[in-house]
Design a binder for these strands. Structure first.
Lengths: 254, 254
DNA sequence: GCCGCTCCGTTCGGTAGGGAACATATAAAA
DNA sequence: TTTTATATGTTCCCTACCGAACGGAGCGGC
């Protein structure tokens, strides 16, 4: 982790940029910009968190690691989310690992200041709580998707969710890593990805995946992506839409 | 749903009985006791919630219903939980269905009063937020268990979690219903339950399951039960243990 | 150029669980 | 008691996915 000299990028996180000017001004002095590299671990299961992170260009994955070594992702957060809900929910720690899935920047805020600001109520608190609820939806939908849908469906969902957090259309990620996220075998990912490539939805070579036909992907994907995207928009859209600085929609909703 | 004349049973919900006397006195006037029958639906996916429910003897299941008709439970709440987090998280609704899994009583509180009391902060708010975090853990663990563990493991987890919310050792529940909760086939449940019965862990006849060897069940279960139970205790134990009225431990932790 | 590493493609066999059909057992209703 | 509805037991086949192994392909370092 590299600590940057300015926090100019703080407005690139959609939750922060949704704040009214006066509330943003209040917390801005506490924000610190950091650069995170691929694979870096922000915290392990059980670690007491020192900071809350608001990704600006980085993507963070929340991973569960089972006793038998199996892994499965329960949710991700990019520039429309945050990492460290447990700080304001009261628990201080969670049982998941937060790991950098795509290198980039984030702004962070110390635990103590975070809790103090949360207690003040206002829009900031409301946004944090609504975001927590949207994560509950994301995790729930992951649970049922894990249970009831095929690997291919889940790969589509995963690609779409990640694409929403990315600046462009290319994702740096090997089949092996995707398999760890989905909790399936690498071969299963290769097979599903092969199908998607043969049908013109994506293209991939040695650790990069490029989206070619996003509308098509949404079409063949199970409903799980849409449910999560729409719920995020329902919960936080009223704040996000107020801000005219937003360049592209956070989530493409049908 | 039947509305009762007194709310004397309100102290039978562990979250409520954890409140300091003065905070409990403040909200008690808003509490209303209701009797709920098996299969009753407290709210459907998308419904605006009118009340938050604190189960005293009832058990409520949170079910997701997919477009193809498949169902899967993401969490449950009994006398150590509540139903209606979305009210204080800001969303007003969730995308799950809340259905009575075991008949009994609950006390409830109207949406408006709930939100007002939550805003006052204090122990009540802290307990509600910590409970929300424990539900996040429960849902996350369900997600990974769905992905990585066998039907038998999941049946054990489900039985243990339900047993924690029950007064006795007998659960009124058919294999068919359990299958809906777990999101698997009825035959799969019959087979797993048959194994558990043949090995003396449980006994069942026509819609009732009796726990015979709970320590044994915990032993052969995957870690998922233990993780959820310990996390609940870590988050809320400090409040629960203060109250001397508690009869039995909410969760048996190894 | 050559070597070596990582990523992807493919195969084989094994298994858990799904879909469907049907037999049997118990409880409630008539 | 007989009837009927519901709960559980069992079988068959089928598919998706797992585990493991190995071959080839791209890309770096030397």
């Amino acid at each position: 982790m590299k600590i940057n000299q300015t926090n100019d990028d703080s407005m690139m996180n959609h939750l922060l940029e949704s704040l009214p000017a006066e509330e943003f001004a209040r917390i801005q002095p506490y924000l610190e910009s950091v650069t995170l590299s691929l694979g870096e671990v922000l915290y392990e299961s059980g670690d007491t968190m020192s900071h809350i992170y608001f990704p600006t260009s980085v993507i963070i994955s929340l991973l569960y690691i089972m006793e038998n070594g199996g892994t499965s992702e329960i949710g991700i957060a990019g520039n429309s989310g945050l990492i460290g809900m447990a700080l304001y929910m009261g628990g201080e720690t969670t049982s998941s690992r937060a790991v950098v899935q795509s290198a980039g920047n984030a702004v962070r805020m110390r635990s103590a200041e975070m809790k103090k600001e949360f207690q003040l109520g206002g829009i900031f608190q409301d946004i944090l709580l609504r975001y927590a609820q949207s994560m509950i939806t994301q995790i729930s939908q992951t649970a049922v998707c894990n249970r009831l849908h095929s690997v291919q469906d889940q790969l589509c969902r995963w690609l779409l969710i990640n694409h929403d957090q990315l600046p462009g259309d290319t994702l740096v990620m090997t089949h092996d890593l995707i398999a760890n996220m989905l909790g399936v075998r690498r071969e299963g990912v290769t097979q599903a990805a092969g199908f998607l490539q043969n049908n013109g939805y994506i293209k991939y070579v040695r650790g990069t995946v490029t989206m070619l036909d996003r509308p098509g992907l949404e079409k063949i994907c199970c409903e799980c992506y849409k449910v999560v995207a729409e719920e995020y928009d329902r919960l936080l859209g009223k704040y996000l839409r107020k801000n005219k600085h937003r360049a592209k929609p956070v989530l493409a909703v049908v």
